[in-house]
Structure formats: structure tokens, C-alpha cells
Simulated assay, not measured.
Amino acid sequence: MRQLLVFGEREDAEEVAETLGEWFPGLGVPRVVRETLAGEDDAEDAQWLVVVEGLHEQALGQVDELVERYDGWREPE
């Protein structure tokens, strides 16, 4: 199942992606993508997503703790 980790800052998303790549080397480094909020013209209102595929259910608690440290959240897709 794919997980989307959502952050307000690009740097936070990149740090989390690198950390997850270290914690779960079999997954590689997850992609970081920019998502503009619907209806928003201001580029400052974009969210940054870390796209993670292949995580085991047991790892989600650990991932949630990491994401919360960076004021983000996880959305299963």
C-alpha cells in the first residue's frame, strides 16, 4: 500500500525521505513531490509529499512518530 507523508516545508520532507531510506534500505529513498493545494494561486501554499511504497504494517507506528516530529501527517492512499 502506498503512503503519503505530508509536510509544509520541503526541507522537512527531504529529511524524512532520507531517514526512511536509511531505516528501510530495501525501499530505497522515497520520492519527494510538491502538491499545490486546489484553488491556491500562491506558491507558498504548496504541500510537500513523501511517497512511500512497500512499508509493512508493523513499520507504520515508527513512521508516524518520525512524521509527527516534523509537524507532518500520514495519509494512506
Rank of each mutant, 00 (worst) to 15 (best):
M1C: 13
M1A: 13
M1I: 12
L4F: 13
L4G: 11
L5F: 06
V6F: 00
V6N: 04
F7R: 00
E9I: 00
E9V: 08
D12E: 13
D12K: 15
E14I: 01
V16H: 05
E18C: 07
E18S: 07
E18F: 08
T19Y: 03
T19A: 06
L20H: 07
F24N: 04
P25D: 08
P30I: 05
R31F: 06
V32M: 01
R34G: 07
E35Y: 09
L37M: 14
E40P: 05
E40G: 03
E40R: 11
D41W: 11
D41N: 12
D41P: 09
D42G: 04
D42V: 00
A43S: 08
A43W: 05
E44A: 14
D45G: 06
D45S: 05
Q47K: 11
W48C: 01
W48S: 00
W48I: 02
L49E: 01
L49F: 07
V50A: 01
V52I: 06
V52K: 03
E53M: 08
Q58F: 12
D64C: 00
E65C: 10
E65L: 14
L66N: 03
L66Y: 08
V67G: 09
V67C: 08
E68T: 12
Y70N: 00
D71H: 13
G72S: 04
G72T: 01
W73F: 05
E75H: 12
E77T: 08
